[in-house]
Design a protein around this nucleic acid. Structure first.
Lengths: 162, 162
DNA sequence: TATTGTTATACTCTATAACTATA
DNA sequence: TATAGTTATAGAGTATAACAATA
């Protein structure tokens, strides 16, 4: 509800926002809205600094997962990251072409393919993980270490089953 | 680090993940990763329950913003929600066609158009805001009221300037 | 000269159906 | 019969360039 205004105030029309910024107080009461905005803020920094590695977020996630889960299959990557199988194919092919990963026959399932990082892939993801750790710290610089831990714990409470 | 295993255990190869679920501990140390996962979790519930209103997240945001900022312009919506102007055009047109919003000449800028909710739009967003409030509570049901407040405050600390 | 709203368009992301090889 | 990986394709989301009308 608009406050009463002096008739002589130059620009003062009811029903017309007076500044560029709109009132976002209602949207800001929602976890979904805030989580997306925070993600977008981090994403911006991520994109800037990871361009040097030629890695998008999903590429980074896949390589990092393979670094700590050697031999994982496409299906496992898909279900872990909520990617649809058809959308992972070209991504995996591109990283294979770049010499970052290798496809090896799966030891006990002829349908599946075990994915492994090459030495080049190992080195790249090692550097990339360091850069992401830095970038994350910068992107959340207004949080104390304690607050950052709390934030992550609460986010996981929203999306993790357990 | 894998536990030692009985030689007779059927499937046990080093370098091969033994379960479907991969080790995501590294990814889970990042705010960006967790914020996106949490957002996706809320988004799923949002999509389910808001389909009845024919509203996507961006539609809801626009209508809610107009409910509390009557007469706002496309440009203001765009800068507030980080939408590019060309991408808002068809969205606004659709809501106009549905009779949810009205375009009125801007009182003191002939280039701009003031956007207003119609009575139908007012009623729809009023119901929709109630539903979103409920759905948000359900989607973050594992959080106490206190934790939910904390989560939102910390997320805003990541993306809001101030 | 700059800004608002718009058109056309391209690029990326996400989703569905259907196929093959293997289980 | 079901699953892993793949192909082709469609749809949604996001991006840039350029224009008319107004400031």
């Amino acid at each position: 509800m608009p406050a009463t205004r002096n008739k002589n105030t130059p620009v003062s029309h009811a029903q017309v926002p007076r500044s560029d910024r709109l009132d976002t107080r209602v949207l800001e009461t929602f976890v979904g809205y805030n989580a997306r905005r925070a993600w977008l803020a981090v994403t911006e920094v991520f994109a800037e600094r990871m361009a040097a590695y030629g890695l998008k977020q999903v590429d980074f996630s896949v390589l990092s997962l393979l670094a700590h889960n050697p031999g994982a299959t496409s299906r496992q990557l898909c279900s872990t990251l909520d990617i649809l199988p058809p959308n992972l194919v070209s991504l995996i092919a591109a990283m294979d072409s770049r010499g970052l990963i290798e496809r090896r026959p799966h030891p006990h399932d002829g349908r599946a393919i075990g994915l492994h990082l090459t030495p080049a892939g190992e080195e790249l993801i090692h550097e990339a993980e360091r850069t992401v750790t830095e970038l994350e710290a910068d992107a959340s610089a207004r949080l104390t270490a304690r607050e950052r831990e709390t934030l992550i714990r609460l986010l996981q409470k929203v999306y993790l089953p357990s």
